[in-house]
């Protein structure tokens, strides 16, 4: 079985993002970029499945300009067997991403397509679900445990009420939640090995994917800054303050 893993190049979770002064977007100048942490968990899970003998090949795929080869190489250094970069300068929205992943899935015929439950830049949480619908295959989202036996996967999902365990037929789409695993550190010699692993570049236009972005972004704005608070000495003072403001 092949496992495809979608990985997105996003601003690192440690970076303090700020909106550009003209509101045209987020200022990424000089900001550290990384694999979306949820996608890194997806890759770790795929690698563990391969190491457990449940899969034969792990392929990482990313959509974006050449810069995202850096994240694909990191994926290869973690242990993926090969990488695919769908080359485009455009910023794709979830539907177009799902269509692109579908085109890759049709080409590669994977048993599992694992992606993060959301990317930490746009926080859409749509790509996995849309991919399953377009592919017409089962989906198990927000996975915190995955077990594969033959043609089925048993997946524990994090849902509002707690945990839900479902069984799905493969091929299927799984989206990963935070508790699924802890991604491994990359071993230094593996960075060198990753340089020799295949990285295929496919122009987006070659996949025949319609990139009709349905949402138009007008402008970005930071959240309103919080007003300066006051310290109160006692519970009575707190109650008085709240009453004065008509909150009690």
């Amino acid at each position: 079985m092949k496992i495809l893993v979608g990985i997105k190049r996003v601003v690192d979770y440690n970076v303090r993002v700020r909106v550009k002064p003209d509101g045209s977007g987020v200022d990424l100048d000089g900001a550290k970029m990384s694999i979306n942490p949820f996608d890194e968990i997806a890759l770790e899970e795929a690698l563990r499945l391969r190491e457990a003998g449940k899969a034969a090949e792990v392929i990482v795929v990313s959509i974006g300009p050449n810069a995202c080869q850096q994240q694909l190489r990191t994926g290869l250094a973690m242990g993926a067997d090969r990488a695919i970069q769908v080359d485009t300068e455009e910023r794709l929205q979830p539907l177009a991403v799902a269509r692109t992943f579908l085109a890759i899935a049709e080409k590669e015929q994977p048993g599992l397509f694992i992606v993060g439950k959301q990317a930490i830049d746009d926080d859409n949480s749509q790509t996995g679900q849309m991919l399953a619908a377009l592919w017409n295959r089962p989906q198990a989202t927000f996975a915190s445990e995955v077990q594969v036996e033959g043609d089925t996967a048993t997946v524990t999902r994090e849902v509002d009420a707690g945990l839900e365990t479902i069984e799905i037929d493969l091929p299927a789409v799984i989206t990963t939640d935070l508790r699924l695993n802890e991604p491994r550190f990359v071993k230094l010699p593996d960075i060198m090995k990753a340089k020799r692993k295949p990285l295929e570049v496919i122009p987006l236009s070659d996949l025949g994917v319609a990139n009709d972005n349905t949402l138009e972004i007008e402008h970005f704005a930071p959240p309103a800054t919080r007003e300066k608070g006051i310290m109160v000495d006692s519970a009575e003072a707190l109650v008085t303050e709240l009453k004065n403001r008509g909150l009690l």
């Binding site: 802890e182 491994r184 550190f185 071993k187 230094l188 010699p189």
Partner: peptide, 17 residues
């Protein structure tokens, strides 16, 4: 990498080369 504050090896432990 992956050494805990108490010096023990965490599950993510990786020996440096």
């Amino acid at each position: 990498m992956g050494i805990a504050a108490d010096g023990s090896q965490k599950s993510s432990y990786m020996e440096g080369i």
